[in-house]
Design a binder for these strands. Structure first.
Length: 675
DNA sequence: CGCCCTCGAGTTCC
DNA sequence: CTCGAGGGCG
């Protein structure tokens, strides 16, 4: 039996009323009706929807109670990458930021820029996707490009509209970014509850919010009153000329936008806002860790541009981090895989900012001297960034005279061999290539994610393999048998099998991973990729010369010399030969032969800044399509791509009559060729 | 040569 | 995340 029209109308009316009261209650904190009245409306809606299940829609307020647990989270690709921000810790850095914006946006130094200052909520950056005004997905930040799908959990957050308020929706697909967080009062309530249940408590509101959003059972999430502040709206076509107008529209659409966000003229007033809230942060019922400052006008934002993955037109002013006092019990020296000696302070365990800390790097001899850290000293520590502990300074007034100055060793603590600090460098290095610390480090590196990606070959396993004499170098891994591994402590049948299988599975790495895995000085994953692309095969790699390599973009004299030295060294040649003989087969780089297209056999030169892709991406595009890159313009040059603020190369191109392309024209040529 | 940016390498805790 | 150092450009 179809639902009567009257029921449908009543349901619609109830939803509108409930949404409105939700908004008044949760977002504006100004309810117009009492709880009993609200419950009556809600119950009536539940009743009608129970009677006519075909009328239940995903944006109904009854759909916020959570759903059955998930097995695992899926992933969502963000429409626009979620960027990271540069930090400022002092007013001077804000002024430097202001100066840079003007430089890059071509504005006179005297110009007064309009900024928007927003409190930086200490929660979880979350990206909501709406299609024609209806919430379709919610994702965590993840790596910036792809995040975890937490839609079920986010639907339970009462302040997040399941549908934009009528009349305010932007058509098409729109992303709303914001911060999911917990109020301090709610955090305390949850912890009391956890305690009563005998379950683990959360260290701070951020961890509690993160734990709640990453709950596989959204019914648990629904019981925690998570909150949300929206701070950005993005659509394929920019809809607003200023950031503040975007925020205004979010407010109109029913999103909670932080009430303290403020449009401010000039950086000096922005700095005053930052310092003011630094003082007053305790007045808020949620944690903030700073202020985000954005250029208001989108046109200026675009002119200021981006550096790598962070915008030049925004900065995070960070409040001073929580600090704690502790005592240095000892200073140890660790030896990395490259033989670098790094001093580490071992401290009385102390709780700072969500976790208990007892180690902190002291970086190197110079840093240690600068801070003058001695064993027995009382030190101030804090978290640099979110996790890494840092010794800020020593409190000399706490000294008793019994503290011991640390003498930096000139012997390697791992092998006892000589350690030297080359002129002009900050690090001491152990010179013994057979040093057990380096041997272990090389093995771990070989198995690491960016290299051969051997799951299970961690620190513990490497230690066990080496100390039992089963493995001396990375090639030995490939002749390990399950029986040998089973003889080790902690290795049962199953885990031994897993390890041997994981090693087997790594026999055909890409050439880039293979080169990276060898651990050549100055060759990280990126440079390894560049080298592999240029060399193509492991045979060519073994013949690499500095003269040839330094022609390659991104490879300078230092890297070129380092690689040549590696491939000439008899020890490393022997290792590569051994790897090949035990059946490791680095895959030659397959270059699809491009025979037609606009760039085949052409030489291209870039000048000026590109906006929609990086210089390196553009160069790769040309190379993939059979072209060559050159750094200077001559009559041999076929195209000069002139980006923003082109330099002298542009003039030279005009003089020589070389074809000049705009970024747009270049992209069009590249794209048509890709199909 | 100086500036800006990116990369490499080392590090902590759960 | 942070430091130091390498590479590219003007």
């Amino acid at each position: 039996m179809p639902a009567p029209k009257k029921a449908a109308e009543e349901i619609q009316a109830l939803r509108e009323q409930i949404n409105r009261h939700n908004y008044l209650y949760y977002v504006l904190d100004a309810p117009e009706i009492g709880d009993a009245e609200y419950d009556r409306l809600f119950q009536r809606l539940v009743e009608l929807e129970g009677k006519y299940p075909e009328l239940v829609t995903p944006d109904s307020p009854t759909q916020r109670v959570g759903a059955a647990p998930l097995e695992a989270f899926g992933t969502v690709r963000h429409m626009f990458p979620m960027l990271s921000l540069n930090n400022a810790f002092e007013v001077a850095e804000l002024q430097e930021f202001d100066r840079r914006v003007k430089t890059f946006a071509d504005l006179p130094p005297g110009e007064v820029i309009t900024y928007v200052a927003e409190l930086k909520i200490d929660g979880l950056a979350t990206c909501l996707r709406y299609e024609d005004g209806l919430l379709v997905s919610a994702a965590t930040r993840g790596d910036g490009a792809v995040g975890e799908d937490v839609t079920q959990n986010v639907r339970t957050i009462k302040t997040i509209p399941l549908r934009w308020l009528s009349g305010s929706a932007l058509p098409g697909t729109v992303e709303v970014r914001g911060e999911v967080h917990l109020q301090r009062s709610e955090f305390e309530r949850i912890n009391k509850e956890q305690e009563a249940k005998g379950e683990a408590t959360f260290a701070n509101p951020r961890n509690a919010a993160a734990g709640s959003v990453r709950q596989l059972d959204s019914r648990i999430t629904a019981k925690r009153r998570l909150n949300f502040f929206a701070y950005e709206v993005r659509a394929a076509e920019p809809r607003f000329p200023t950031h503040s107008q975007g925020l205004q529209r979010l407010r109109e659409a029913g999103f909670p936008v932080n009430p303290h966000s403020k449009t401010i003229e000039g950086i000096d007033e922005v700095a005053a806002y930052c310092l003011d809230w630094q003082q007053r942060q305790g007045e808020l019922d949620y944690n903030v860790d700073g202020v985000v400052v954005k250029v208001d006008e989108i046109a200026i934002q675009n002119r200021a541009g981006w550096v790598s993955r962070s915008p030049r037109w925004a900065i995070a002013y960070k409040f001073p981090a929580e600090e704690a006092l502790t005592v240095v019990r000892d200073i140890l020296v660790s030896v990395g895989r490259t033989g670098v000696l790094t001093p580490v302070a071992i401290m009385e365990p102390v709780f700072v900012d969500g976790s208990t800390v007892q180690r902190a790097t002291l970086h190197n001899e110079d840093e240690l001297r600068r801070k003058d850290v001695r064993v027995g000293d009382t030190v101030v520590i804090r978290k640099a960034g979110d996790v890494i502990p840092e010794v800020v300074r020593v409190l000399p007034e706490k000294r008793t005279g019994k503290e011991k100055k640390f003498a930096f060793p000139n012997k390697c603590p791992a092998c006892g061999g000589p350690a030297v600090r080359p002129e002009g460098e900050v690090a001491y290095r152990c010179l013994n290539p057979a040093c057990p610390a380096q041997v272990r480090g090389n093995l771990e590196h070989w198995g690491s994610r960016g290299a051969l990606d051997i799951v299970g070959l961690g620190e513990q396993t490497v230690e066990a393999l080496v100390s039992n004499g089963l493995v001396k170098d990375v090639a030995d891994l490939y002749t390990l048998t399950k029986e040998q591994v089973k003889g080790l402590e902690r290795f049962a049948d199953k885990s031994a099998d897993n390890l041997v299988r994981a090693i087997e599975g790594s026999r055909s790495p890409t050439l880039a991973r293979f080169i990276y895995g060898l651990g050549i000085r100055h060759v990280g994953d990126h440079v390894a990729e560049v080298l592999a692309e240029h060399l193509g095969t492991v045979e060519k790699f073994l013949e690499a010369s500095a003269a040839d390599l330094s022609q390659v973009s991104e490879v300078g004299p230092v890297i070129a010399a380092s690689v040549e030295e590696y491939v000439r060294n008899p020890g490393s040649r022997a290792l590569v030969a051994k790897l090949l003989s035990v059946g490791v087969r680095p895959q030659p780089v397959r270059k699809a032969e491009v025979t037609e297209g606009p760039f085949v056999g052409k030489t291209v030169v870039f000048t000026g800044g590109l906006s929609s892709l990086t210089r390196q991406e553009a160069e790769r595009l040309v190379k993939n399509q059979g072209g060559r890159i050159s750094s200077s313009v001559s009559k041999e040059t076929d195209y000069v791509v002139a980006g923003d603020k082109p330099g002298s190369k542009h003039e030279k191109a005009l003089k020589l009559g070389v074809r000049v392309l705009s970024e747009e024209e270049f992209l069009r040529m590249g794209r048509t060729a890709e199909h």
